[in-house]
Design a protein around this nucleic acid. Structure first.
Lengths: 197, 197, 197, 197
DNA sequence: TATGAATGAGAATTCATTCAT
DNA sequence: GATGAATGAATTCTCATTCAT
């Protein structure tokens, strides 16, 4: 990483503290109930400073969601790649399970990113997070025996991630229609069936 | 149905016009951009009247989402039951397709109910909308050959509805990762695979 | 008491329940925080009915204060007259003490009448509560040896009641500058000194 | 006193103009009839500015009452100390008379501070107004021949101030049971009697 | 008399955004 | 770049009062 001037460092610090404050407040008291005033107070910067870095509340929100979502996916694929699997489906389920367990431990995060863990986010993340590509490569490699076309693979991946996301939200946050651990067998079985041609 | 007094009728009318106005405004200019002032003006009632029927903006929103979601499901199952199908999976896909087509035509509605077409809503709807039960009966009947337990059937139904909902939102509203019509074959194939033991 | 028609009885009942509801609400949640809506709901009558009996919130408040204040004074004098006293000052202090003890047990009442236990109220009460006159008679009789003029007696009575009222409020409600029981000796001594020529 | 920056000066100015506007409006048209809107308009500041300095209408009211009450007491003791008196009771009555005359000239002020000229206020005022302590010193000094304990002196002071306050309110505002000037002889005589052991 | 739905003026409060320092 | 006081439009919500039934 490049050396930064003191000014540069200070800027970085302020931005970071704004991110941290906003994340904390969004997750604990909700997006609706968080005012920019609250964010800057918690971050310990002046109100005007917020506008030097972000357009408005939804700008910082989007950036947080993108950041956090990418981190999860990136971590999940990275952890998955550390392991050895006999079959692709085992690898995929390990990956999915990693995400689920992560969200189980971070309910508040899940609450704000929930249906935003969308394809749009993933596409955006490609640029900044190299590892995200590997999710697709994993799929491509794993499914090559089934002779899927590239487009189909993307769609399958999309469907699986959407399903995982919405099941997580419902089961982890609302506990409906069942606890996430009770739901896992059905979810995993569904995913396994989906990828088979 | 019991005859209503003029007063009772009038009350009903006011409430209805508030629902209609709020729905219209929420879908066209967004929830965030709709003030209670706007709603009452459009409904042609006094501001105070709003608070006679609803606690605040989110109260009427919740009630609208519940109403509309139930209506869609109710309509879908009712339409499905009018037809004859050879196989259960055809019936199920007809039902799902009805919902998708409905949402395609009502993007604005989809936008506001999407995060709310949850199992919780469906459970609430049981009370007021008899037909909702029939969705479960259809599943039970259709899946009896597979020897699923009752709990498993509920979970399958949940998974399929969640998947449908989130795919609809992403593909219809965001057009990501593809148009809903392009997505349908994959989605339907996934659903078919999911129900098979 | 005259026999009442059923209609008459019903009216009386409604008025009473309005009084009771308003008193309960004024004392428990404050005058400021009590709306006419709250009163009629608690009383179990329609909103319009309130206006058949009272002009507004302050009308019923005034009437309650008058009623309650008069009751206290009336009760105090009546209880005092049941006893025998050697000296007038003993009688007067018994009377004052009765009031203090009563207010000690009815802090909430004290809170709402305090600023209203004024001479004005007492004057009004003369008409409806015969016994109130007896307070003045007691004074007249008790102070005759001092050769006070009638006007002076009235003023002394006024001064003693004002003093008692404001000391009660401060000591019972605010506990400032001391508890009412700690304050009594000084208060009583002051009163005794005041009446002596 | 420290020099203030322009910004700091401006802040002070705004706060002052809010105080002045609120005081003017509270006294002339009543607390109930004064809206925050009226205050800010009169003060020539934006509505939001009000909330920068005060929580709500009752916050500014409390602060005004505290300020004004302290000022009166402070002025009264300061004026009293300028004079020479032979006897303590003359000094005390001069002090009380100063207060009465002040309130006679400021009926509107009396109306809003009236039964708030309480011990609680005086205690709070100790911190900001040095001279308030002198009231107690005057009492201590003046009563030393009577051998009162410190606690008793406080209570006597309290009783005399309460009595003065409530008599002023009733006689100046309501003219009940008599004009304040008619009442003075009795009040002064009462006070004189109270302090004598 | 009694009702209670409807009214709508008006009060309180919030908050994103600006801009002089 | 950083600050934070000031803004004032926008919004929510209250509530006394009326009046047709």
């Amino acid at each position: 990483m490049k050396r930064m001037s003191k000014v540069e460092e200070n800027k970085q610090l302020k931005e970071e503290s704004l991110y941290a404050a906003a994340y904390e407040l969004f997750t604990t008291q909700g997006i609706h109930n968080t005012a920019i005033n609250d964010i800057v107070k918690k971050a310990g910067v002046a109100k005007g400073t917020f506008y030097l870095y972000f357009k408005d509340k939804y700008d910082i929100l989007d950036k947080i969601v993108l950041k956090k979502s990418s981190q999860i996916l990136s971590q999940a694929i990275s952890e998955t790649n550390k392991e050895q699997f006999e079959k692709f489906e085992d690898k995929l389920l390990y990956f999915i399970d990693y995400i689920i367990e992560y969200l189980k431990e971070n309910k508040l995060l899940l609450k704000i990113i929930y249906k935003n863990l969308s394809w749009g986010i993933i596409k955006k993340a490609y640029k900044d997070y190299e590892e995200i590509n590997e999710i697709f490569y994993m799929f491509e490699e794993g499914l090559k025996d089934f002779n899927y076309e590239e487009e189909e693979i993307k769609k399958l991946l999309f469907i699986i991630l959407e399903l995982t996301g919405s099941v997580c939200y419902s089961c982890i946050i609302l506990n409906e229609p069942a606890d996430i651990d009770e739901m896992k067998p059905i979810l995993f079985s569904a995913i396994k069936k989906i990828i088979i041609r």
